[in-house]
Design a protein around this nucleic acid. Structure first.
Lengths: 338, 338
DNA sequence: TTGTAGGCGTTATCAA
DNA sequence: TTGATAACGCCTACAA
């Protein structure tokens, strides 16, 4: 097989013109059956694959969607991506994933490998890219849907998220009313994380609603990272913080929190209740099984892809979609003993 | 901003030729400082981004590596991807990820969106794509490195994996000699998974080496999936299988196994020891903390990318790399009580 | 039904 | 130091 096989080689091999080969490949116009089979045979014999770049250049790119995330490292992100992937396939699109590995600033120098020239539309998660990049796409009217973040000032880009505030309100309320807890600690996510911001609002509103004082000492850094959560809890344990419940911010952190607490001889939920957010796949297997807020992450892809395709097809899309969440009561909150 | 901004618009705006603009962008040849700044300004004003497809067509594609995986759904895959990503960045390459969502057969109809025309080289995980596709790349001498699988018959493609057999041998040996277990069950992975195949070999060899009989009844399907592992253990519990240790195949399954066992009133490790493979991030927080085989997944990316770059640069690469693993003894095996 | 030829946006070669 | 122009591989009028 020669180094590079182009449509010309196929045409020669089959004794037809390149136009005919193109027609066979794209199944447009009428081509006589014998010609079709001759061309197909030549393609197979030569192992010919159309050059994506050339196709794209003439506006015949395959249907490709892109998603940009900071990393693929958490169960949450993982499920989100899977969900988008399935939705894309469902709609006959391919999905390409690019992770910025937490280096938003990279683009100043290097343009994104996933951009308007390679994809038909882009899904951008939280702050995986900076506002300037988003604005760039926006100005070009390039199809864009924002995931778990709101649009930059002055732009109107469809965005999709979950009801963090009401979800958190529900779980804190549950801790207060059903589980009779009074000193409820809260582990925040990364500083610039919108989810965390809204969860904090929900946390504060619930406290206020039930007449519990807000105590800054009960706020800690979890960062949605196992080691950060671990450090925070160990710190609290060391200073002997008075606490009877911990809202860990997310499930990953909650698992670690329970583990650290238990290693220190505390009982969960008897001494300290622990609750999470997300309902990760393994959360129901934790010991004790984790009470959490179930966010239908596996459905987000459907909404996101649907909106993106509307944009791609030139139709208007809803500016903002907030998906409902629900409380999942298991053992770690102590409700079942109360 | 016009719908499409090409190098021509920039050239006009800056009052130079497209060739000059190209030179400025690629920083080749000498261009007078004033010209450079005029061009830069035009680029910024117009929000110009080079067309990736056109660039690729003339052989000036940005440095892009691709990785093809079946999914992004496990902690293991997630760490592997992250590792590859970091290594790629380290070498000034971008990484694009494509998941086949377990539909290997798709390509017959649709060619891969990640191929020789879009990337400079490809990393292919296990059986995310079929042999025919791999052979296609192989025939074209397209840079390819196989991850956690061996090359198809008749091809010689560099591949990278871990010492599954010796790792499993070690953990089974540990169970037998230190923990004094005799009835050790084994949960296999997916049927066509090479890792699982080698782990089974290690399991059998260890049994034989220490004179323990191999009992088919002790082999079960885990599939490296939480629900499959759960079903298998529940089945064993129901029939009252006589077992004093379980090698769960991987950590995810091990977590589930412990949980199901405990829910059924069994003590881990007193009644049944449980061990895993991979050393997932959360495994040390499990209760009890999981004894497992530590595979340096976070280093695989370095090896893989290094090999791929050698291939891309026309240098020869090692046909096969097997990375060593090590035993991590925690509580779930019962060694610390013995 | 099939072939010819022009153009998609960029870069590289060759002149100027 | 710059500009004109020919590729790169493919698709799509327009002709035949």
């Amino acid at each position: 097989m020669p180094e590079r096989v182009t449509i010309v080689e196929v045409a020669n091999q089959a004794g037809v013109s390149t136009a005919t080969v193109s027609r066979v490949i794209n199944e447009v116009n009428k081509v006589s059956p014998e010609t079709v089979s001759r061309v197909r045979q030549a393609i197979k014999a030569l192992g010919y694959v159309p050059n994506l770049a050339a196709r794209t250049l003439v506006g015949n790119s395959p249907k490709i969607l892109g998603i940009i995330v900071p990393a693929v490292s958490s169960p949450f992100l993982t499920i989100l991506i899977q969900s988008v992937n399935l939705a894309a396939i469902e709609n006959n699109y391919n999905l390409l994933i690019y992770t910025t590995v937490n280096q938003t600033s990279l683009f100043a120098a290097n343009p994104l490998p996933l951009n308007e020239h390679l994809t038909n539309g882009l899904l951008i998660f939280a702050n995986s890219v900076d506002d300037a990049t988003i604005r760039h796409f926006y100005r070009k009217h390039f199809p864009l849907v924002l995931l778990y973040r709101s649009p930059p000032q002055g732009t109107t880009i469809p965005c999709i998220g979950i009801s963090n505030k009401s979800g958190t309100f529900k779980v804190i309320e549950h801790l207060i009313t059903t589980c009779k807890r009074r000193r409820i600690a809260f582990l925040t996510g990364p500083a610039d994380n919108e989810d965390s911001m809204w969860r904090e609002k929900g946390y504060r509103e619930a406290l206020e609603f039930y007449g519990l004082p807000f105590d800054p000492a009960l706020m800690g850094q979890g960062g949605y990272h196992d080691w950060m959560a671990k450090e925070q809890i160990e710190e609290w344990l060391r200073i002997g913080l008075d606490v009877d419940a911990i809202f860990a911010g997310d499930d990953t952190s909650a698992m670690v929190v329970m583990s650290v607490l238990q290693a220190a001889g505390k009982r969960v939920p008897e001494d300290i209740a622990v609750v999470g957010f997300n309902d990760d796949p393994l959360s129901k297997y934790a010991s004790p099984p984790l009470t959490t807020v179930r966010a239908p992450t596996e459905n987000i892809g459907d909404y996101a892809v649907a909106e993106l395709l509307q944009l791609i097809n030139g139709e208007p899309a809803a500016p903002m979609t907030l998906v409902d969440v629900e409380l999942v009561i298991r053992e770690s909150c102590g409700a079942k003993m109360a």
